[in-house]
Amino acid sequence: MTENQIIPDLRIRLYKSMVLTRKFEEKIMDLSQEPGRMPGMQILANGQEAVATGMVSALEPEDVIISNHRSHGHLLARGADLNSLMAEIMAKETGVNGGKAGTLHLSVPDLNVLMTSTVVGAGPPLALGAAFAQQYKKTTGITVVFFGDGAAAEGSVHEAMNLAGVWKLPLLFVCENNCWAGAQRPEEHCATPHIFQRAKGYDMPGRSVDGNDVEAVYNLGVELVEYCRSGKGPALMEALTYRMRGHGEQDRQHYVDPKELESWAAKCPILGYRQKLLDGGVLNQAQIQAIDQDAEARVAAAAAFGDESPYPGPETVLTDVFVQPPSA
């Protein structure tokens, strides 16, 4: 697929999805400033919206997603319900996982967002199993696993890539290289600057893409998804982007040069795409404004829903460990 095959409707969808993700996470940022509103660590993907939106939009509903710390964009692009997502992030009873996941362990099996692991690098071996099941059952679905440049240093990622290569599993590895692993830069944790080049060692195609260009991510996503779906085996996409927030909202990013943040802010995937759509006559200013307002209203409603929801009661604290619990 080439860029000019992206129809205007899809362009608007991509744009709306990125805006919604940005507004959703900005709301979490605001709420995180108020003590007690947001439990745990809120690890956000501001600046990385184009990767989540572009990649997830290239999937079919039957495809499986395995996510990580920065999962909100993946879930929203998949069409997760805002209210139950926000409530879950607040660890409320009405959350999509009954308040037992919080932001770090979100899963929406109904949407095939099967699991989120926040043990860095644990997603790829889990994804291996999902992709194996798809191959075993001879379905046409594929599995996509999102992981970061930091996770690429975990041994489990290598094990998963190797086995996926040996068994030719329908598994797309998507490395969201956001230039930071905690407070460490790539040159401190990655022997090669290009993670996609590792694909060669596992006999799969490895491609790099500008992760702040949503259409570029979408187009490469479509191409690699098709490759995996055709039965040829796994593939690796490295999307180069930038982490605008720290590792959690308590992280003040004292280790980041403010000039670097400014330069990446200028490359904001949403601002850039907005201008492109305005220039191309796909959207006008009034429509842009309406999209912003709609996203803000939906996010505000979700936050209110979360606020009004109770925490889970003591009656569920001991449940859901086993399907068939031991009789005490």
């Binding site: 499986v64 395995i66 099996p109 099967l114 699991m115 644990a122 790829p124 071996p125 889990l126 994804a127 291996l128 199993g129 999902a130 992709a131 194996f132 099941a133 798809q134 075993y136 059952k137 599995t143 041994g155 489990s156 094990e159 998963a160 190797n162 086995l163």
Partner: peptide, 15 residues
């Protein structure tokens, strides 16, 4: 790790 991950992911998919 891959063997155990394989079991986990596949079991979650109904195998």
């Amino acid at each position: 790790a891959a063997i155990a991950g394989l079991a986990l992911g596949a079991s979650c998919m109904g195998l």
